[in-house]
């Protein structure tokens, strides 16, 4: 018990813990839609592309994550715009925009005096990086996004399952598409504070993918993804604290272990259970 509570005596760890819990939940919910919409690459692209936002914030001495948030929202909208107007697939649009943006970020960083420790924190995640102001941004963004998802849940589900029919039924495809892109952008930047921009996709994708191994019900998927996301984030945070490793790496590895265990033990994957010499089960979640 001391192992769990002792770190929380430090103010920075309290911030990190609250922030990590919020990020774990937010990533799991948005990540479930990212997985269902098959948008894994956009999470990766926006995270990497946000590097330029951080560099601009650093250069102008603005709040880094706030600047990155607005920059990444612009990036998400630009990806959607290029995809629609330039007659290229979404993957191609993401590839063009994120590599250009990352190149801009690298160019800015290489041309100015950037402290290596800061850069490591942004790239791989650092629990020390969460200030009380950052925590307010994390909590505010999480509450706002989760509220939007709850209020428009059936609309987002319809859009994710069958976008064309959602449009025929009178839903605004543009509103749903762009609002989802904006929410992914905000989630990616907010989550990058604990997992870093390199590994943010791990927290976005892996908990939802793990949940998918266990259930074929949407509500169970979301609840399980939240549970896995929360568990990965919190366990990863403690591993980071005790073993002094970058929090992004410890959270991503924990999430990956959860996925591996889900793959082996889930009732939906009977052949794999057999190959591991486990009993088959018939009951499904």
């Amino acid at each position: 018990m001391h192992l769990l509570l002792d770190p929380l005596h430090y103010a920075f760890m309290q911030n990190a813990f609250i922030g990590t819990v919020a990020i774990g939940i937010l990533c799991a919910v948005i990540g479930s839609f990212v997985v269902l919409l098959r948008l894994a690459f956009i999470g990766e692209g926006l995270a990497h592309g946000s590097l330029a936002g951080l560099a601009i914030g650093y250069l102008l001495n603005w709040d880094l994550y706030l600047t990155a948030n607005f920059y990444t929202i612009g990036l998400a909208l630009l990806i959607g715009f290029v995809h629609e107007k330039a007659k290229v697939t979404l993957d191609t649009a993401i590839g063009i925009i994120f590599s250009t943006s990352m190149a801009l970020g690298i160019a800015l960083i290489s041309s100015m005096k950037f402290y290596t420790t800061d850069l490591t924190g942004y790239l791989f995640g650092s629990v020390l990086a969460i200030t009380p102001f950052d925590l307010r941004i994390i909590l505010g963004a999480s509450i706002l996004i989760l509220l939007i998802i709850i209020l428009f849940f059936k609309e987002f589900v319809f859009y994710a399952f069958d976008p064309e029919m959602a449009e025929v039924a009178g839903l605004s495809r543009g509103f749903l598409h762009y609002s989802m892109l904006i929410m992914i952008a905000i989630t990616v930047v907010v989550a990058s504070q604990t997992v870093g921009i390199i590994l943010v996709t791990a927290l976005l994708i892996i908990p939802a993918a793990s949940a998918q191994q266990w259930t074929r019900s949407l509500k169970s998927l979301l609840l399980l993804a939240i549970f896995f996301g929360l568990a990965s984030a919190v366990i990863g945070l403690y591993i980071s604290y005790y073993f002094n490793v970058a929090s992004g790496a410890s959270i991503a590895i924990t999430a990956a272990v959860v996925f591996l265990l889900s793959l082996i033990f889930s009732r939906e994957r009977q052949p794999l259970r057999r190959s591991f010499g486990l009993k088959e089960t018939t009951k499904k979640l």
Partner: peptide, 16 residues
């Protein structure tokens, strides 16, 4: 792989 039941799909018809 989309985790949605027959009933939930038909309920989508009520969304509009």
């Amino acid at each position: 792989e989309f985790p949605i039941s027959v009933y939930e799909v038909v309920m989508l018809g009520r969304v509009g």
